[in-house]
């Protein structure tokens, strides 16, 4: 694999203010993404997994500068885009795109799907005339296995899977280098999920695009990712090659997550060790001191309650942020 970094994220922080109440309650700060560093290689697929509310979506949007980050820096194709003004950023937007979770919400209901797909072409002046424009739209429809003659229809005439393919076609229109898929298949039923995931893998192979694949569904992520980052409460707690992560999870949270994936074989299902988590994910308004996972962690010790662990390479490019794991106190 090509080992060039396409996007370098350093200590990215994304905080939001809650609105103060009517009675002058203090504004609170939501720590949606906290000190995340990640280097994304050109051509790879990074999976981002975590529970709902762990900051996956915020992370995905922040790195594309759909939000203005609170701290840290983002470098895309060698350019620092952290504080880049919107006007300048617009030229880079064609190279990094985002596919939304809900295909029922992400297509303008009053525009034909053809003009929705073609819009990035016009915005970025990628076509010179109408003939070229129509040819390119037809191409894009072919890529996502839709009949180009459907271009004249409106989104409400399509099923969820077709709409998501329209959304994917739109994201491909401007020849992007990086696509963030935010739960791009979660809204679809299982058989469709598989088809879309395969389609994405296929497109990637042909067009050499870097994917960031955000999902709460570990089996989907496993299927498509080269590397996987596990998010917990706005932080990366484990980062590793996909196979390695599934074979040898190092963080107790990852272990618990993997336990939650059902195995379709009752004998294997019975045999495996199960780690249960207590309670709910803590509120990002008041994140716990120390390791964010310690209130739910069966292996937490004093140090976990006071100091936040850093990501440490445990060999084979397998990084984990957990004292217990780093000290080898976790059961295998």
């Amino acid at each position: 694999m090509d080992q060039q970094i396409i996007m370098k994220i350093d200590d990215l922080r994304m905080y939001f203010n809650t609105n103060g109440g009517v009675f002058g309650n203090k504004r609170k700060i939501v720590h949606a993404v906290d000190d995340v560093s990640l280097s994304i290689m050109e051509g790879e697929t990074i999976g981002i997994v975590g529970e709902s509310g762990c900051g996956k979506t915020t992370f995905g949007r922040a790195i594309l500068r759909l939000y203005k980050p609170t701290g840290g820096s983002i470098e895309f194709m060698g350019q620092n885009i952290t504080d880049m003004p919107e006007r300048k950023l617009r030229q880079l937007r064609s190279k990094m795109v985002y596919v939304f979770q809900d295909p029922y919400e992400s297509l303008d209901p009053r525009k034909t799907v053809g003009s929705t797909v073609g819009e990035p072409l016009i915005i970025n002046h990628l076509v010179r005339n109408k003939k070229e424009y129509e040819k390119r739209i037809a191409e894009l429809f072919e890529i996502v296995n839709l009949d180009p003659s459907m271009a004249n229809r409106y989104p409400h005439e399509f099923s969820g899977g077709q709409r998501q393919r329209v959304a994917i076609a739109r994201s491909l229109a401007s020849d992007p280098k990086l696509i963030v898929f935010d739960e791009a298949v979660s809204a679809l039923d299982v058989s469709l999920q598989a088809r879309i995931v395969n389609l994405l893998a296929d497109i990637k192979e042909r067009l050499k695009i870097t994917y960031i694949f955000i999902s709460h569904d570990l089996s989907v992520v496993k299927h498509i990712s080269d590397r996987i980052a596990v998010f917990y409460l706005g932080r990366v707690v484990e980062l590793s090659e996909a196979d390695e992560l599934y074979k040898n999870p190092l963080h107790p949270y990852t272990k618990a997550l993997l336990t939650a994936v059902p195995i379709p074989d009752p004998f294997l299902e019975d045999k495996r060790d199960v780690i249960f988590m207590d309670g709910e994910i803590p509120s990002p308004i008041n994140p716990p001191k120390g390791c964010p996972f310690h209130p739910r962690c069966p292996f937490a010790t004093d140090i976990c309650r006071t100091d936040a662990p850093q990501l440490v390479d445990m060999g084979h490019q397998h990084l984990v942020a957990c004292y217990a794991s780093q000290e080898g106190r976790l059961p295998k």
């Binding site: 594309l64 759909l66 950023l89 617009r90 030229q91 937007r93 064609s94 795109v97 985002y98 939304f100 809900d102 919400e105 992400s106 297509l107 303008d108 209901p109 819009e119 990035p120 915005i123 970025n124 959304a167 739109r170 401007s174």
Partner: peptide, 17 residues
Amino acid sequence: QSDYILAEKMHGAGNFR
């Protein structure tokens, strides 16, 4: 607030558009 408006912004559409 709709996703499709955010999608426009994400593709680099100007305010006027």
